[in-house]
């Protein structure tokens, strides 16, 4: 097992407030872990402890086998970190800033130039390399922060909201970049954009009030959604009522809701009871009775639903 990040029983108190409550997980090489949770759930705190910036009240964090509090220098060498808000020295240019980070990370001469060139291309910041960081837009700053985390081509990447403040094109680019790097690194990204998890992550952890409430693949998370395997069906107006009653009579159907309607047809969503698939049944009956006024669509579920379901349970 090529386990690059190991967090074990991390607990963090801020005075009397328990911000992180016994969090443990491992991240293997090749994994992109999406770290999800409502604001204030303890995402950033956990990440700060994983980097060794904050000391845990109890528990340990290891990067490539090095304990971040006992062997901090070795652990930090292997790791790139983009802190929340992508801070950078405003009075420097990205070029100076990257040079500083590269030198502090022990890169020498040619290596520094070469690596700056590589990360500049990867993050598309070439055009602003000589501008003062404080004059840059949010999107550029974020990417300068990302470049800084990548400068030494680390095995472990810990990125706190890497796409926050980026426009859709830039988000796409950054996600593509993360995917490209994924196969030989272990990456943790925190986000509250759920589509991002679907787009880049191989695994998702949801935390709420400092505890892990879900740890699985984005697909299996979606399967937890009530609307997983639900079916959108469009029927002609005149057969709408009969169709609805018929669907309701299936014993595997939980609920039927009207999604939209107009002069000619009505769209329903049929939500199955947990674990049932209605597709065959519904498609057969709709075809046989000639109700169909459009195609059937199967819903795979929404992460948003699951997210809300999981995190609001613990809040109330």
């Amino acid at each position: 097992m090529d386990c690059l990040i190991e967090l074990k029983n991390l607990v963090k108190y801020f005075d009397a407030i328990k911000a992180v409550d016994d969090i443990s997980f491992n991240v293997q090489r090749g994994e992109v872990l999406g770290f999800l949770g409502p604001n204030g759930a303890g995402k950033s705190t956990t990440m700060k402890m994983a980097t060794g910036f904050l000391l845990p009240t109890s528990g340990t964090a290891k990067i490539m086998g090095y304990d971040v509090t006992e062997k901090p220098i070795q652990a930090r060498r292997k790791m790139g970190y983009l802190p929340e808000g992508a801070p950078a020295y405003g009075d420097m240019t990205p070029f100076e800033f990257l040079t500083f980070v590269a030198e502090a990370r022990g890169l020498k001469g040619n290596e520094i130039e070469r690596n700056i060139k590589i990360v500049t291309e990867k993050t598309h910041i070439g055009s602003v390399l000589k501008q003062q960081i404080e004059t840059l837009s949010k999107g550029f700053r974020r990417r300068v922060g990302l470049a800084q985390a990548l400068i030494h081509d680390p095995d472990v990447l810990i990125l706190d909201e890497p796409t926050d403040g980026l426009d859709p094109n830039q988000k796409y680019e950054v996600r593509k970049l993360i995917q490209e790097m994924a196969k030989d690194k272990a990456i943790i990204i925190s986000t509250h954009i759920l589509e991002e998890v679907e787009a880049v992550c191989t695994r998702a952890i949801i935390i709420s009030q400092g505890k892990i409430t879900a740890d699985e693949t984005p697909d299996s998370l979606k399967a937890r959604s009530e609307r997983h395997n639900a079916i959108y069906v469009t029927v002609k107006n005149d057969s709408a009522t009969i169709a609805r009653t018929t669907f309701m009579q299936f014993d595997t159907v939980k609920r039927v809701e009207k999604c939209s309607e107009n002069e000619s047809h009505v769209e329903y969503i049929i939500i199955p009871k947990k674990g049932f698939n209605l597709l065959d049944q519904v498609s057969t009956i709709v075809r046989e009775r000639g109700w169909a006024a459009g195609e059937l669509r199967v819903e795979h579920g929404h992460l948003d639903d699951v997210f809300r379901q999981i995190t609001s349970k613990t809040l109330s």
């Binding site: 980097t51 220098i73 790791m79 990370r105």
Partner: peptide, 9 residues
Amino acid sequence: EILLTLPLT
């Protein structure tokens, strides 16, 4: 956060 996560004491 950047400064103190560089490999420096």
